[in-house]
Simulated scan of single mutants.
Amino acid sequence: MTFVNAGTLGTVAGARDELVSRLIQRNDRLRELGCLAYEVGTNDEEPDTVFVVEIWESAQAHRESLSDPDVSAAITAARPLLSGSFGGFRFDVAGSPLRSEDV
């Protein structure tokens, strides 16, 4: 079942754009691990926050991706830019009005 992980990443003051730059670098490994979409955004009303929406083939694919060496290295490299403030939610997709096929 398709799985969504959507959240916010708080950044240290002034580091938002650098974190965005790192997160949007092309990474074909994510697709190999089961990531269907990985969208990164900002909102000028929250200058020290990065918004991320990940869509995965399954919750298991998402969990397993976290132990991949490439993914682990990217997380480690991003840590100095993070303030420790995180938010978000996760859910299994029930369907969409944009398609008729099963998820």
Rank of each mutant, 00 (worst) to 15 (best):
T2A: 11
F3M: 01
F3T: 08
V4L: 01
V4K: 03
N5L: 05
N5G: 00
N5F: 14
A6P: 03
G7F: 12
T8S: 08
T8D: 02
T8Y: 00
L9I: 12
G10W: 02
T11H: 06
T11R: 00
V12R: 13
V12D: 04
A13Y: 00
A15Y: 04
R16K: 02
D17N: 12
E18N: 07
E18F: 02
E18P: 13
E18A: 12
L19Q: 03
L19M: 02
L19D: 00
L19N: 00
S21T: 13
S21Y: 04
S21W: 03
S21R: 03
L23K: 00
L23C: 10
L23H: 01
L23A: 04
Q25A: 12
N27M: 07
D28I: 10
R29I: 14
L30I: 08
R31C: 08
E32R: 10
L33M: 07
L33P: 03
L33H: 07
G34H: 01
C35K: 01
C35V: 12
L36Q: 11
A37F: 05
Y38A: 00
E39G: 13
V40Y: 02
V40D: 08
G41Y: 08
T42A: 01
T42F: 00
T42Q: 02
T42C: 10
N43F: 06
D44Q: 15
E45Q: 15
E46H: 15
E46D: 15
P47H: 02
D48R: 01
F51R: 05
F51Y: 14
V52R: 00
V52N: 00
V53H: 03
E54A: 07
I55S: 09
W56P: 01
E57R: 15
E57W: 05
A59S: 12
Q60D: 15
Q60K: 14
A61F: 09
A61L: 04
H62M: 07
H62Y: 13
S65Q: 01
S65T: 11
L66H: 11
S67C: 07
S67Y: 10
D68F: 03
D68W: 06
D68H: 04
P69E: 07
P69A: 06
P69I: 08
P69C: 05
D70W: 06
D70M: 13
S72D: 04
S72L: 08
A73K: 03
T76R: 14
T76V: 14
A78Q: 09
R79E: 10
P80I: 11
P80C: 09
P80W: 07
L81T: 08
G84M: 04
G84L: 05
F86W: 12
G87W: 00
G87I: 04
F89C: 11
F91H: 14
V93E: 06
V93W: 00
V93C: 06
A94P: 03
G95D: 10
S96I: 09
S96P: 12
P97T: 12
L98V: 14
L98G: 13
R99G: 15
E101C: 13
V103R: 12
